[in-house]
Amino acid sequence: MFQAVLSAYGLRADSCKIEPFGSGLINHTWKVCQEGLAYILQEVNTTVFPKPEYIAHNIRAIKGYLDQTAPDYLFVAPINASNGDDFVVVNDRFYRLFPFIAHSCTIDSVQRPEQAYQAAKQFGQFSRILYAFKAQQLKPTIEDFHNLPLRVRQFKNALAQTSSERMIKASFAIEEIIRYYDIEAQYTQMVKSSELHLRVVHHDTKISNVLLQSETGIGLGVIDLDTVMPGYFISDVGDMMRTYLSEANEEENDFNKIAIRNDVFAAIYKGYMEEMNQVLTLAEKQFFIYSGKFMIYMQAVRFITDFLNGDIYYKTNYPEQNLVRGLNQIDLLNKYVARQQEFEEIISEIDKNQEIVLK
């Protein structure tokens, strides 16, 4: 496989050092080194992304726009094959090659508020520089990716069809999801009233999708652009809230380890709003805290729905893992909601200090 793919880029596999790279769970990724040059080779998971041509279309469109409007922005786009194609297809598998950015690194979890700040600033900058780009030009690489009403309907369908055994085991989680139905109702109202503006958003803002400068930790840019498509800013902010605020991730089964870090929340707000403050409308800004509820709740709904359906979507390593994941996210949501007043005070203090700086 490597020889067939790399030769399409003018490289010889037998003279390259090839090793697995990164911690991504969707696409297979390798680092390829040859004669002092380094690349990232990736196989696209066509189960998750059934239309790779949509990914290529979106990246081409954004790159063309940025080449004209922000040529100095670090946009890590794939290298075209020798024949000009976006992908190399071998045995019905899609591969692409990226340049490896020297003196860069990624991290898998937020250990310090500064890391959250750098990431939030990079995701905010990405949306800001694409503010005038018509998001409708982009194609949906994953249909209904962050469609909360759809996820709630799927939950209701699963609830009606699940076994009595799974319903009993998930009874607390089911009650909690129903108790928070207002999160979905608020989202529906926001979209219906056009309070949220369709923008170019990343949709997968985990910390590992930010390139950092190796020595300083300063953000360089965002990567893993397969999910870039039209959406609402609450997707990007909400996913940062979901994955940055607690040191414990969604696999943790000791819920005592799930704890909200206010300093990380402040870092997310500061970094993101330094870039997006002049872009977001006043109405949108009112939903900054809501964004965390939106994404945490949606992920809880998806895990519990999959458990009720018999674990047919997410991979599991032990029985009831999806139930544990769902309960984990419900615990995170409850702890997040309990901090709302503190979050509002943090935002007010940052905004006040920003006004002083501007004066």
Rank of each mutant, 00 (worst) to 15 (best):
M1K: 03
A4V: 11
A8G: 14
A8E: 15
G10P: 02
R12G: 13
D14T: 07
C16E: 06
F21C: 05
G22A: 08
W30R: 01
I40K: 00
Q42A: 09
E43G: 04
E43L: 09
V48D: 08
V48E: 08
F49Y: 11
K51F: 12
E53V: 10
H57D: 15
K63A: 14
K63I: 12
L66G: 08
D67N: 11
Y73H: 01
L74R: 01
I79L: 15
A81C: 11
S82D: 15
D85R: 03
D92C: 07
D92A: 12
F94M: 09
Y95K: 02
P99D: 13
P99N: 15
A102G: 10
H103Y: 10
S104P: 01
Q111G: 15
R112T: 15
P113K: 02
P113G: 09
Y117L: 14
F126W: 01
F126Q: 02
Y131C: 15
A132Q: 12
A132C: 10
F133C: 11
F133K: 05
E143I: 11
L148R: 04
L150I: 14
R151Q: 11
R151Y: 10
V152L: 08
R153Y: 12
L159E: 07
Q161H: 13
S164P: 06
R166F: 04
A173F: 01
I177S: 10
I178Y: 04
A185I: 11
T188F: 03
V191Y: 01
V191N: 00
S193G: 05
E195P: 02
L196Y: 07
T205V: 09
T205S: 09
I207T: 03
V210D: 05
G217H: 05
I218V: 12
G221N: 08
D224H: 02
D224T: 07
T227C: 05
G231Y: 00
G231H: 00
F233V: 06
I234V: 13
G238E: 06
R242P: 01
E250H: 02
E250T: 09
E250G: 07
N253S: 14
N256P: 04
I258M: 08
I260R: 00
N262W: 02
F265M: 07
A266V: 06
Y272W: 03
M273R: 03
E275W: 05
Q278C: 13
A283K: 07
K285L: 07
Q286T: 14
F287N: 13
F287S: 12
F288G: 06
G292P: 09
G292K: 08
V301W: 01
F303S: 03
F303T: 08
I312Q: 06
Y314Q: 09
N317F: 09
N322P: 05
V324T: 15
Q329K: 03
Q329P: 04
L332Y: 05
L333G: 09
Y336G: 14
Y336M: 14
F343L: 11
E345K: 08
I346W: 01
N353V: 13
V357W: 05
